[in-house]
Nucleic acid binder design. Structure first.
Lengths: 201, 201
DNA sequence: TGCCTGTTTGTACAGTTGTATAGCAACTGG
DNA sequence: CCAGTTGCTATACAACTGTACAAACAGGCA
């Protein structure tokens, strides 16, 4: 059962075992929660044995950190992929928001993992929400240096707005959908109610 | 170590062991999640042994159901405690909303448990969200029979509005607070941004 | 060829989990 | 007075957990 990848690593379909393990962990952590996911389940989903998971990541906590790092990296790459050309102020922010929204809707596992990470609160360990917040803050700083972001509000306020508007709706929409589905027998053609999430500073 | 309650059961401070177990389970399930909470931790928090927990509730799943039933009961009692006197339409709904909001702000564990229950998705098992939705629906029906609720929208739409507005803000506010706290060093006196959660039908 | 470094496997171990069961203490109805 | 029920403890057990470790295996390089 010795499968072997000939060094051409980063193809989306033919990945290193290490990457396959990380992706499988993301999927399972997102679906069932990290605590409820055993290393053996991760290994089985990645098509390897437990020993290899331990060999590559050492501990389960390290594997979880690798997963979170990959999520942050995905955010950073998505933001960086939007060109910073000479646009009217606010245009770049909107474009980045759209890019992140598209990335999230294409990666349901990331949304699910984030939902768990946020609801957990997770006292003690280095936080994914903190890292994403700092990423957003850096994004705001960059735009300010380029002179395409308003300075009416503080950086913190702008970060809150970005995070809440981008994530809040994704987190709460399942609740709305489940409730509307439960009362769906009332009307044949029912429009899905749309959530509005915003912050008042 | 034989402690014994002399039959005066339902005092808020001197509870039956069965009730103490249920309360401890609610606290721990809310704080750490039900899957991450062992029956031994529940027993220790309630000051009893594991055997008694399983004696009273049989299985862990049954204990969880008892916890959820207690939550629903708390909602029902809170709603029922608001008098249904001859008021102008909409007044009763507002009073009930206020009562539920007060109850939730006094029981942080219920809020935390609900957040987990809702965001978990929790495929398969009988759902707490469903029960609360049905409670809300019954509430809307009652008000309609009494002629103090508008019939402009469907019952489903009204239930969604109630649930989302009452719960959505409570669930997302921790995210807002954590981010604002992280950037709190910017300004000495920072106002907490207030969340706005609503639905467009 | 032969060594060396990094993958990958298989298995073992101690700790924790949910659950089952046997037994003791106290109250209750007859 | 005593059989029965209930509250409660203690212990046991099989399953599963994260982690550790030795051995088999591959490819690159001298």
């Amino acid at each position: 059962m010795t499968r072997r990848q000939p060094s051409a690593a980063l193809r989306a379909d033919d990945l290193t075992a290490k990457a396959r393990i990380r992706n499988a962990a993301l999927d399972l952590f997102a679906a069932n929660g990290a605590e409820a996911t055993s290393l053996r389940a991760v290994a089985a989903a990645a098509g390897v044995t437990v020993g290899l998971v331990v060999h590559h990541y050492g501990t389960k906590e390290a594997l979880r950190e690798a997963v979170e790092l990959a999520i942050v990296e995905q955010f950073a790459q998505t933001i960086a992929s939007v060109p910073l050309g000479p646009c009217p102020p606010g245009q770049v922010t909107a474009a980045r928001d759209r890019a992140v929204a598209a990335m999230l809707s294409a990666n349901q596992a990331i949304v699910d993992y984030l939902r768990r990470a946020i609801l957990d609160g997770s006292a003690g360990r280095v936080d994914l929400v903190s890292r994403l917040s700092q990423l957003s803050a850096q994004q705001v700083d960059d735009l300010r240096e380029a002179g395409v972001a308003s300075t009416k509000h503080t950086v913190g306020e702008q970060v809150v707005t970005i995070m809440v508007r981008q994530l809040g709706r994704l987190f709460l929409q399942p609740l709305v959908d489940r409730i509307t589905d439960e009362f769906a027998d009332d009307t044949g053609a029912s429009m899905r109610p749309q959530l509005v999430v915003d912050v008042n500073h």
